[in-house]
């Protein structure tokens, strides 16, 4: 384009006008957006926009690192319906609850599931045939002795975002169950609780660790009680929160049963019954009550 008139080049002045207009337009748009964000978007007192954005980014990164750990657990293969968290949520009590997000309580390395990646037919597609041979199609589970390979990602995930509760849960499972180091898992969970003081889940996991692995009922009881207090502070508990509360009642009831305290057991059973009357955990507590009545 030629802006030369009477042998004078008007290109530069016109470009400067265009630049000024663009800058002004950008300023107006930004002003409008910021005004909108002040009035309309939910604000959290004390947190700047930058803090919120960086926290979200860190959480996303942390979640991706946990996905990587899960991939390592399956021999570098992305498997969608069998993840490390299923194993991390393994509980050492004999029941199978009817919760919507039931985890089936599988134990590491000896469970079966149809989790092979969906495989479209190769047909006459030579590219797909090559890909099928190049990339691994099946998956395997990392042996417990090699689960140290998962630790760098778990460590990085919680360092990236200390609010990733699932990472703490998975990490404690790897340390206590796969690497047989429950003391280290306790320290790790305590670190998680320090960063997430309101988390019922972490407090519960710590209680379970003391109860099932370290066999320290006293410490376990302290943490179950703490978990119950935190759970009762939730204003509008959802299904998951209520299920967690049921689990706390179950453990507290189990402790009461083992100590022969029928009054405490009945109290926890009644609370559990109000939450989930037909749940196997509630029914187990009912059975303990019957046994105590029968004087067994």
């Amino acid at each position: 384009m030629n802006f030369a008139i009477n042998n004078r080049d008007y290109t530069l002045p016109r470009l400067r006008i265009l630049q000024t207009l663009t800058a002004l337009l950008t300023a107006v748009i930004l002003q409008t957006l910021l005004t909108f964000s002040d009035c309309e978007l939910p604000q959290r007192e004390g947190d700047s926009m930058l803090t919120l954005v960086s926290q979200d980014t860190r959480m996303v990164l942390s979640a991706e690192m946990m996905k990587k750990a899960d991939e390592y657990f399956h021999g570098g293969v992305k498997v969608h319906n069998c993840d490390l968290n299923d194993h991390a949520h393994d509980h050492d009590h004999d029941h199978e609850h009817d919760h919507e997000k039931d985890h089936k309580h599988a134990h590491a390395h000896n469970h079966s599931h149809d989790s092979e990646q969906s495989r479209p037919e190769v047909g006459r597609d030579p590219f797909r045939w090559i890909n099928r041979h190049i990339h691994v199609q099946e998956h395997r589970h990392l042996q417990a002795a090699r689960s140290v390979e998962l630790l760098p990602w778990v460590y990085a995930a919680t360092k990236t975002s200390p609010h990733n509760i699932m990472a703490y849960e998975s990490g404690s499972y790897i340390l206590s169950d796969m690497l047989n180091n429950p003391r280290l898992a306790v320290e790790y969970l305590k670190d998680g609780i320090a960063h997430n003081p309101a988390s019922v889940q972490l407090e519960m996991s710590l209680g379970e660790l003391y109860y099932n692995k370290i066999k320290d009922a006293g410490q376990a009881l302290t943490h179950f009680q703490s978990a119950l207090n935190k759970s009762l502070q939730i204003d509008e508990p959802d299904e998951d929160d209520l299920f967690m509360r049921l689990r706390i009642f179950f453990y507290l009831g189990n402790n009461a049963w083992q100590n022969g305290d029928a009054i405490r057991l009945r109290s926890f059973y009644q609370k559990a019954f109000e939450l989930w009357p037909k749940n196997p955990m509630t029914l187990a507590m009912e059975q303990w009550l019957d046994e105590m009545k029968a004087g067994k």
């Binding site: 390592y72 021999g75 570098g76 293969v77 090559i130 890909n131 041979h133 190049i134 990339h135 691994v136």
Partner: peptide, 26 residues
């Protein structure tokens, strides 16, 4: 198809080698 040349998954996670025939095709 640059993904044909990517054997990182097999190498890093200790999966078995592919057949040399497939290698030749790629």
């Amino acid at each position: 198809h640059t993904e044909f040349f990517d054997l990182r998954q097999r190498l890093v996670h200790g999966w078995p080698a592919i057949s040399w025939g497939v290698c030749a095709v790629v």
